[in-house]
């Protein structure tokens, strides 16, 4: 169902970071999103230290467009699903889960200066 394409092969990763990146990729690829959750178009992630030097993983969940913004109550199950999968999968990094809409992500992709480590498309 999912296809992964590395976006930035030239990024230099330490051993721990590279291992963590592979684990995060595997865990996100294997996620099963319940049908009552907002429709996820794709998932982007980056693994790197955060601003205080702690190991961290950013996950941007790209949601289908709709007229009004998605609400916290609607996206919270997705946050819990992702955070739970990462924790249970042995990822010790702090998870920063964020949400964008598909059209917002298209605009970002056009101007992107800081591509993610990975992107998982959901068909």
């Amino acid at each position: 169902m999912d296809a992964f394409s590395a976006q930035h092969p030239s990024r230099i990763l330490g051993g721990v970071e590279a291992t963590e990146q592979a684990t995060v990729q595997r865990l996100l690829e294997s996620l099963t999103i319940p049908s009552d959750c907002p429709r996820v178009v794709s998932t982007l992630f980056s693994v790197r230290p955060d601003s205080t030097g702690d190991a961290a993983v950013w996950v941007w969940v790209i949601l289908a467009d709709r007229e009004e913004d998605w609400t916290l109550a609607e996206v919270r199950p997705l946050t819990e699903l992702i955070e739970g999968a990462l924790t249970e999968g042995g990822v010790r990094a702090i998870p920063y889960v964020r949400f964008r809409t598909e059209s917002e992500q298209i605009l970002i992709d056009e101007q992107r200066t800081d591509p993610p480590d990975g992107r998982i498309e959901r068909l």
Binding site: W60, L63, D69, W70, L72, V75, R98, F99, R100, T101, E104, Q105, I108, Q111, R112, D114
Partner: peptide, 10 residues
């Protein structure tokens, strides 16, 4: 780092 309205509102 780009921010979007959806991301920021949440």
């Amino acid at each position: 780092r780009a921010f979007t309205r959806q991301e920021v509102r949440l």
